[in-house]
Design a protein around this nucleic acid. Structure first.
Lengths: 318, 318
DNA sequence: AAAGGATATGTTATCGATACCATCTGAACA
DNA sequence: TGTTCAGATGGTATCGATAACATATCCTTT
């Protein structure tokens, strides 16, 4: 018992005893077994988080935000990736819950029925991120992808572009992608601009390469398109490079914009106009809210919806 | 006890009983508590892995390789990032070991003395990845960064370039970066080419932006440099974009090459010559080897060094 | 020196699963 | 009918820490 106390911060053990214990610990190479502690204290020190992909730098930033925020609290992150499917998410959630995390962060508001039930029954705070779900499970940290894309359209329309095209993935499994597309369509309609120039190409998340192929298909069907908006900067970058490869001038012959403000968008040439999203902040705030609830020990916490910022970043591509 | 059996695959419980149990499980929303199981079975089902950064797509690929390989085995990944420092790695290793992982994967061969001791004493298989450490702790899955960079130099020298410059980070905390730099220097010397054109810029990992700044500094000091090799594709991309911004022709005025074969290298214009590394395979094989040892239950396993492939990918930038 | 309070250390039960062994059930067969 | 055996189910101890409470020790004060 005294050893247990000595190895915890902030509990009272005499200096002499603590030193003796530490000496023994060092000599033996003893490392506390947290899974035993977990069982008796009913606190695992885990927080679970699920992102669609580890390879996407936006979500990697969110994961980093979560980790950084957790670090000082001694909570450990259980990270999983869903591959953009709710089925894998469901399996992952179940696997995570077996570890009894004290809180859980998921991406988006689309889940299987069973996943919702699991999350509801888990009795732990849940944060949905990166979107504003119409029926939140619990906490939310995110922004409206629809509005953000709408803002991009309006910003470009103000510069005089009228014939807008949109490039995105083929399925709705990337819900944020679908929302951006809806935001695009609605904004175009609101402004009374020519509609219908939508190219769907590839299973989300669409890659740089697919962005290039998609813009080719866009130009074949609607050669007079003035501005192409892409579901993400990666596809925008692919589109941009493909256009340059074909000798087109950007933005004179065609303007291109993306979404997400990936590093590549800032430093490629020409720089890509995009929507900057506070990826790191999303993770940070989601974690912070969880910590608040966990440490607060409030049994029944308030539902809170935290809006994170976004802004259009205009660069040379438009 | 029967419930415990019913919830495990492959143990004998009559169909009727299993169905009754499952019905109750569903009704109650019961989820197994693995931390309790862990304690009695002495198997946590965890594998720990540490990468320098989550935001680097090369390491993200490795993490994905690990996760994918683990998925079918029921092992769960505890992922942490070290920020390229051995101090953070040490703290992370200690935190991970408290969770009693059944195996551990680290990046590189540089660790603090205490970290080595912790890993040694943990009594679990350890895999060092992404390098070939001179004094391996246990298992190794990686390649020689030095040779890989050397191969790139030789390949370009064969094309006729003679005045080579190198761009990398300022400190040695990125050991793979240091090894690549050494490989560069040695290859240049071996070939009897002009030496000394080394620009160190920024704390590793150096960014796209820093790559751009570094190439400026390179051109100021050695304006006649014919080919610039960069520690990674990100800095190479930054250098490339900066050169184009300044109206230089690549590769006619200056050739640029990177390392890592990031997606951006393939699809930017011109495409960047680089060294392709089997990032995903490193993760996959590291995990596979761990599983082999864990499942094999061999108390004392053989040390094995698994070499992963690399190859120079020539593109338009050289 | 005795009393009292604060601080330090010790004891025991417990968390929730599984290992291990014991018991039970039912079918097959002599 | 009794015996045997495999398969199904049940009972108990246990993993290694901590919560909660009990006791010991030390210091202060009068």
């Amino acid at each position: 018992m005294t050893v247990s106390r000595a190895l915890k911060e902030g509990s009272r053990v005499s200096k002499a005893t603590r030193e003796k214990i530490m000496a023994a610990v060092n000599e033996l190479g003893y490392v506390l077994d947290q899974s035993a502690g977990t069982l008796s204290s009913r606190k695992t020190g885990f927080v679970a988080a699920m992102v669609p992909s580890l390879n996407n730098s936006n979500f990697a930033d969110t994961a980093r935000g979560i980790t950084d925020e957790l670090e000082s609290t001694g909570l450990q992150l259980l990270l999983g990736y869903t591959d953009y499917t709710v089925e894998k998410e469901e399996r992952l959630i179940e696997a995570m819950l077996r570890r009894r995390p004290e809180g859980i962060i998921v991406t988006g508001g689309a889940h299987t029925e069973r996943a919702r039930r699991l999350l509801d029954n888990a009795g732990i705070p849940v944060v949905e991120t990166w979107e504003l779900p119409s029926k939140p499970i619990d906490q939310v940290v995110g922004f409206s992808n629809e509005e953000a894309m709408g803002l991009l359209v309006k910003t470009l329309a103000r510069k005089g572009y009228r014939k807008f095209g949109y490039i995105g993935g083929t399925t709705s499994r990337d819900t944020r992608g679908s929302q951006r597309r809806e935001g695009f369509v609605r904004a175009i309609e609101d402004l009374g601009l020519p509609t219908g120039r939508l190219v769907s190409f590839g299973v989300p998340p669409i890659s740089i390469e697919q962005g290039g192929q998609a813009v080719v298909s866009m130009l074949e069907r609607w050669p007079d398109t003035e501005a192409v908006l892409c579901v993400s900067d990666l596809s925008a970058f692919g589109a941009l490079m493909e256009c340059k490869r074909r000798g087109m001038r950007v933005p004179q012959d065609i303007a291109i914009a993306g979404f997400g403000d990936y590093e590549v968008a800032a430093f490629c040439h020409p720089g890509i106009t995009t929507v900057n999203v506070d990826c790191y902040g999303i993770g940070q705030q989601a974690a912070r809210r969880l910590i608040q609830i966990i440490r607060g020990g409030e049994k029944k916490h308030e539902q809170e919806i935290i809006l994170t910022g976004y802004r259009v970043v205009e660069r040379e591509s438009t």
